[in-house]
Amino acid sequence: MTPRNHQTTERRREAMAILAAAPARDLMRLWEQSGLPDDAQLLRGPETGLVTLRGRMGGGGAPFNFGEATVTRATVKLPEGEVGHAYALGRDLEKVRVAAIIDALRQRAEHAELVEERILSPLRQALAEADTRKRAETAATKVDFFTLVRGED
């Protein structure tokens, strides 16, 4: 893979991760306000299925299956030909359909900036803020050990 290709792939991967992680409510609100075209043909789904989740024994050892999760996926095609994919935990068909359209739109130069500015950037920021808040709330429960000195010396 060329460095440029790699960068494009990395960006797409990050965008898809944000769309998957975003709460449906936030994603739908930003989508509706974005004014981006909703015109896309569904190639697959949206459909819900299972993904078997894997852990590693001892945390980092050999993998094992430890349960399943509901996952929804969709594939769409823009009138111009770009194909967009989306996957997300849960069963929200509409969220995933929209996420697939967004994935397709961001491949087109004339939409990429708008997608970034009106959808991905606010979502990225909201997710980061939520994580920061969670970390700070957890950090407040950190035990600060201290030593009690008893006796003269």
Binding site: T48, L50, V51, R54, G55, R56, G60, P63, A69
Partner: peptide, 14 residues
């Protein structure tokens, strides 16, 4: 009742 899409990569608890 659901179809299976596949297996995840092993999670990284670290």
């Amino acid at each position: 009742t659901l179809p299976r899409f596949g297996y995840s990569q092993p999670i990284n608890t670290g």
